[in-house]
């Protein structure tokens, strides 16, 4: 009986969560496309500003550029990160596991903004250093969680799979990866969320992103630009995080 009420409560919480996510997505899309409609509002809020609406580029372009930066670097991070995590958990690469793990741990203490700055002497200004910094930095949580996720698969489960006559490849694809998936996705979530934030600062090294109006506003003392950029990038981060939460939940077996 109490199990049912609990289940109902959870169901109700989940549908409320759906509602929040829905509203946030509508807000994100609406503001991206229709920020121009809010010009009178910004004019009223900041009467001293000559130009209260960022107009050097459309917010849609900035949003797409931002998502492009994050998507591209995350793709690189996930590909290399999962491959590296798989390599060091196989018998061939096990010797590298302590080194790779400590590298991932130490690397994550580096401030993302400093990593971005260091990429500039290596790759110049613009798109390239941002992609390099984002991919490198995003790699670390993915590696860490891939190793951790594969480590949670119980020995008895692997033993049983082997006993069933499954090949190594089958065990990996049908037992290990599905069981580790939730933890791996949690790592990708951390990596993507950090990258959304770092891509914003990427505009200081010349990459176009939602940080462009934000930084322009800070430099030019135009608070309206700051708010427009900050609102959109904040919404983007929250929506992305909630979507990942949903994805993670889909892979949680039994718990």
């Amino acid at each position: 009986m109490s199990g049912t009420t609990q289940g109902l409560g959870r169901l109700r919480a989940a549908s409320a969560g759906n509602g929040v996510l829905g509203v946030l997505i509508v807000l994100l899309v609406g503001l991206t496309l229709g920020m121009g409609q809010l010009e009178p509002l910004f004019r009223a809020l900041f009467p001293d500003l000559g130009n209260p609406l960022y107009s050097r580029d459309s917010f849609l372009n900035l949003m797409l550029a931002h998502i492009g930066l994050v998507l591209m670097s995350s793709l690189i991070s996930v590909t290399i990160g999962v491959a590296a995590g798989l390599f060091v958990t196989r018998p061939v690469g096990r010797e590298f596991e302590p080194m790779v793990s400590s590298l991932a741990a130490i690397g994550q203490t580096f401030p993302p903004a400093a990593v971005l700055a260091i990429a500039v002497p290596l790759a110049g200004f613009g798109f390239a250093p941002t992609i390099i910094a984002l991919s490198l930095y995003g790699l670390l949580p993915v590696i860490q969680n891939t190793i951790a996720g594969l480590g949670t698969v119980p020995h008895t489960t692997l033993e049983a799979a082997r006993g069933n006559g499954m090949s190594r490849w089958q065990i990996l694809r049908r037992v290990e990866l599905p069981l580790a998936m939730r933890v791996i996705i949690a790592g990708i979530r951390v990596s993507v969320i950090i990258n959304i934030g770092t891509a914003t600062i990427g505009s200081t090294v010349g990459a176009k992103s939602l940080g462009t109006p934000l930084i322009a506003g800070l430099v030019g003392n135009n608070l309206a630009y700051v708010i427009q950029g900050a609102l959109l990038v904040g919404l983007l981060a929250i929506v992305t995080d909630l979507l990942f939460e949903r994805l993670e939940r889909r892979y949680s077996f039994g718990s």
Partner: peptide, 18 residues
């Protein structure tokens, strides 16, 4: 607190200014 943690720092700094 979790939602707050996901917000990019520069956006939070910016939104606090006004």
């Amino acid at each position: 607190l979790n939602v707050f943690q996901t917000l990019p720092s520069i956006a939070v700094f910016g939104l606090l200014i006004a």
